[in-house]
């Protein structure tokens, strides 16, 4: 889409051959990078005084099932508080091995955002300290924002969970038991 903007050219010089594609559709500067060495590029983007993209706005993903190969794209939006410009970084991820490096060491805010991507798309983040589902529950089967997840899919009922790890006051439970026995229907 025409000439690259100065920032993208600058990145192309710094990482020759590592910028797979770039465009600036409607003024949104975008680069596509491979997932190998992702942390290195991101820490450069964060630390470099010229780009100064120290603010991680968002992490999300898009499923291009049957439209593109590889199937998934993890999308990062970065912002510079000082220079007031944005950059979108896209990382293609294949279906067979949906893993990318986690950005939690660079930004703490990546923690929940990556958990949400795992929850919705089933893309794993290696090195993430606590990769659990965040919006859905652990027993949920499948990843709903994948294009092959049917809209009207029903989930099986989940049996009641045990109160594992929760502090339970024994006295109060005894009291409940007492009450239950007291008011139990007589046979």
């Amino acid at each position: 889409m025409g000439e690259d903007s100065p920032n993208i050219q600058y990145l192309g010089e710094k990482f020759p051959g590592r910028i797979l594609a770039s465009h600036a559709f409607r003024g949104d500067e975008t680069i596509v990078i491979p997932r190998e060495g992702l942390q290195e590029i991101f820490s450069f983007l964060k630390e470099d005084p010229r780009l100064d993209l120290s603010f991680l706005t968002d992490i999300t993903a898009v499923d291009y099932l049957g439209k593109k190969e590889p199937r998934f794209e993890v999308v990062y939006h970065l912002y510079s508080l000082r220079a007031k410009h944005r950059l979108r970084v896209k990382v293609p991820v294949p279906e067979e091995d949906p893993v990318v490096d986690s950005l939690v060491p660079l930004w703490k805010g990546a923690n929940w955002l990556e958990r949400e991507v795992w929850d919705m798309f089933g893309i794993r983040f290696s090195g993430h300290p606590d990769l659990r589902r965040v919006l859905l529950y652990e027993e949920f089967q499948g990843h709903p924002l994948r294009k092959d997840y049917p809209v009207n899919q029903c989930q099986p009922l989940v049996p009641e969970r045990e109160l594992q790890g929760t502090f339970v006051d024994q006295r109060s439970s005894n009291k409940l038991l007492q009450l239950q026995q007291k008011f139990a229907p007589k046979r």
């Binding site: 706005t57 968002d58 999300t60 898009v62 499923d63 439209k67 999308v75 939006h77 703490k108 805010g109 923690n111 929940w112 955002l113 949400e116």
Partner: peptide, 25 residues
């Protein structure tokens, strides 16, 4: 963050929710 595939329906609509990120902190 909106992705269009061309056509009458959105391909992907992502909302960056400010409170979700605040709750993570």
């Amino acid at each position: 963050y909106i992705v269009s595939n061309g056509g009458g329906k959105p391909y992907r609509v992502r909302v960056r929710p400010p409170c979700f990120i605040a709750m993570s902190a």
